[in-house]
Structures are given as C-alpha cells and as structure tokens.
Amino acid sequence: MSAVIELAGLGVRFGERDILQDLRVSVSGRTIGLLGPNGAGKSTLIQTLLGFVPASSGTASIFGHDIRREPRAIRTLVGYMPENDAFIANLSAVTFIRMMAEISGLPPGAALERAHEVLFYVGLGEARYRPLGTYSLGMKQLAKLAQAIVHGPRLLILDEPTNGLDPPARQRMIRLVEEMKQQMHVIVCSHILRDVEETCEQVLILKQGRIVHYSNLEEERRANKRFVELETFGDDSGFADQLAALGCECAKAGIGRLKMVLPVGFELREIYRLAAERDLQLRRLNYRRDTLEDIFLKAMEA
C-alpha cells in the first residue's frame, strides 16, 4: 500500500524549543491513531502537515504531495476536525457547512446538497437550521465532523474527536469513524486510548517530539494470539517436551507454569488432548493480551 503520510526528518522549532525532532516514518494504514502525552507534539504534527506551522527541518508528504511545496494540493485532499470549538456562532449549521464546502471548491449547488447530506449523516439533520451558537458540546463536535467530511476528503484528521462527549455521543462518534474509514484514511489524535484501540489499525506514539512507537495494532493482536500462558496442576514433567515436539516453543515460568509460543496453525485442542492423556489438570490458559495501554506505557518507558 502506498504511503498516506511520509515523514522525512521532520522537525519543528518554536523559538528555542524543539517541538518535533527528526520524525521519520511512512504511514500507510487505513486508520492511524496518533498518541502521546500532553506536549508530545501531536497537535503540532497535525498543524505542520496542514501547513499551519512551518517545518524547521526535514519535510513530510501526504499522498506524495510535499507539505512545503504543495500545501494547497494537500488541503484539497484533507479534512480536518480541530480539537477546540471552531464555528461561526450566528450562522446556521447548513449555511456554515455549505460555506466550508464552497471554500473547498464545491460549486454552490453541490455544496448546499452535500451540506444537507452530511448533516443528516452525522445526525444533525433536524437541527441543521439552528445557529451553531445554540448547539450543545456534542452537537458542535458533530458539526465539526460534518465540515471536515463535506468535501469528500481522502484523509480525515480528527483531533480529539470524543472530547467532552457523553457515552452515547462518544459511541456515535466512534461508529461514524468506523463507517468513514471504509471510504477514506482516518487519523485519530486522542488521549483516550480506548477510542484509538476501537477505531485504529495502526498506532503512532510520540513522546517529547519524537516517535517512540509505530506499529500495526491488528498485527500485534494477531501475534499476541500466538503467546499462551498455561497453569497446570499435577505432574507436568515431560509435558513441555511433548508440546515442544508439536512445534511449540516452551519456557518454564515456575512450578506448574508454562509460557509458550504456538506455531502457525496450531490447534489449542492439542494442548487439552495431551493434558488429558497425562491426567494433568489445566487450571488456566491465557492469551497474552497486550492492550494499547500496555503498548503506550511501554513506549513511554522506552
């Protein structure tokens, strides 16, 4: 798959402070989670990609367009939902979204039609003629999402999309992201690991302006299914050897405890069969579950 975002030694400096330092990565996933603690440089990275902040060193490209040379081309392809409230209070939602669509290049007729469409799509159909200033926080988030997708971008950048949302509104936002990722690439920048875990295939973790982790969550999840922890009761001498003969890599982790890496295509029932033959009780069998939180914490310790 061709790269969605390519960072080539990207650095950003505000005065004497290095905000981003020598970022190098080629991101190609459908949905990418951008994580990091406060001040890690997530928002600055987004703003640099959008051309709001000039890069002080290196460069980056989105769909092959260089951020220094082709910012207009990039902005045509990108939809951006900022973290903070962003709207024009005395405009109705439909007028506001229409204006944003027209500025993105849609002709007035198409812009109006799509403004109605996306407002219904995000769930603001009934409130589309109300001034945005009268919207609740959740509705404002949805309006921000609507303006980000109205022009049909290829890449959607969501900065803290579930900020301040109650659980039903959060679920709705997650569902919308899930649906939209079928049609476009999505970057979710969030503090809430659960949101990223639920929606993203890949995760890019920043710490103090540097990339400390980039991985494919799906692959990690698949890999984790091959790691098994076993707790037995009874005489387990020779049990590890028998499992090794079936292709498992085993390591003793104490009395009655085994850690194993299963070979590809290995059926778990083989373990039960062997244990039954030896009259060995299996008290516990766990997959290793590296949650995103584990990945994040490991990245922070690195």
Partner: peptide
C-alpha cells in the same frame, strides 16, 4: 476570531 473559525478556513485550499 472569537469562535476560532480560522483553522477551518485555512485547512482548506484557501
């Protein structure tokens, strides 16, 4: 300016 709408203008080809 008050409603922080500037990023929405300038994240577009504008």
């Amino acid at each position: 300016v008050v409603n922080n709408a500037m990023p929405l203008y300038f994240c577009r080809p504008f």
